[in-house]
Write a protein that binds this DNA or RNA. Sequence first.
DNA 1: CCCCATGTCAGCCGATCGGCTGATGCGATC
DNA 2: GATCGCATCAGCCGATCGGCTGACATGGGG
Lengths: 215, 215
Amino acid sequence: MSTPVSAPSVRLLLCDDHAVIRAGLRALLSSAEGIDVVGEAATGEEALAMAARLRPDVVLMDLQLDGGMDGVTATRHLTEDSAAGPRVLVLTMFDTDADVTRAIEAGATGYLLKAEQPEELFTAIRNAAAGRTALSAPVADRLLSRLRSPHPALSPREQEILEQLARGLGNREIARALFISEATVKTHLGRIYGKLGVETRAGAVAVAKEKRLLL
Amino acid sequence: MSTPVSAPSVRLLLCDDHAVIRAGLRALLSSAEGIDVVGEAATGEEALAMAARLRPDVVLMDLQLDGGMDGVTATRHLTEDSAAGPRVLVLTMFDTDADVTRAIEAGATGYLLKAEQPEELFTAIRNAAAGRTALSAPVADRLLSRLRSPHPALSPREQEILEQLARGLGNREIARALFISEATVKTHLGRIYGKLGVETRAGAVAVAKEKRLLL
DNA sequence: CCCCATGTCAGCCGATCGGCTGATGCGATC
DNA sequence: GATCGCATCAGCCGATCGGCTGACATGGGG
């Protein structure tokens, strides 16, 4: 059916900050047909540099990186010159609203969970190389349910308020930190409570950490 | 020096809730001399059942499991009959105080980070099989510094208060939930603030999530 | 052109919080 | 059997929070 020469191996670049995970993925993928791991990056910066040099077809990207650059930012840079750049396939542990949305917006071609079966990973990589989107089932579910019920998204300013809140600051301190009045802080807080479905500051911090709007 | 027959392969059981990680580790470890992966478990319960059946020398355990039983609990059960049970080597992403302490107390023989080099993992597994402790460098640092400065550990009751706090409950509601008076709740809260180095409920939740005392 | 989301601000008020002092009981440790 | 950590409770008080109503400016989308 297929012509072996016309389907060369997918050139893959790994990006994950954990050496054991990288080594494991490399060992795992080396057993897969048609996938060739051409490099490993431990940070976002490294991934950009190596992608420019190695020209991989697909970058397998973890969202949680410990350097200055997170996976979303790295994905955005990798895909911003859409013609030449590699496809980015996100492989992560979390299927949170915020993560999925940001990764897709940043230009990721697919979003896989580490809980997925290895075969899923292989096919997702080959699909990504061909430009086809690949989503884990739980992620797809989440996206659909999100389209049904609109944004629980915080505005930029509300996000800033929330960050100060998580530092344990009082309204007066938040006001000074952001150069606004206490009244404004209280207004924002009220809206944040509404959007997060809570009634107290502690609850807001808990929900925000839960939904990974913080940290 | 060594007699080949007297050093058979280490029988290893993997326990991690992410199928991709398990497959990667298995592929990686299959390339290592003297290590034989005899099984994979996705949950704590599964790990206990498989350990009883397969009698591995070492269980490589992730602390973050998504079933009802977490890695610490599984470790405790695996090691409680100290004579017959396997050695447990924890392999996780976090080197937080609370995680390390609980794992060690639960009977883990070693604590490795996924950011470690694969060679470290191999030697740690062989060491664990021989009963020798294996700690990642950052983890060892943390343990030492912890011995220098005493517990920021919360008492069980304080932990319960904290959990209610993170749900956004008020003092009165926490009191009702735990069948105590508001006065007692306030007393506990004051001590929690002191231990966590904060002054507000929101700050306490943020620090607790940070130190992984919650969730 | 109007509407709506966002961001800004004000005042009021009751409920809640956080700190304080002080007290009791209980189990473990020494 | 004295001491210490833990858990329990009481009352007081000033500061803060959260909800409310109302207001104004900006900027984008219908």
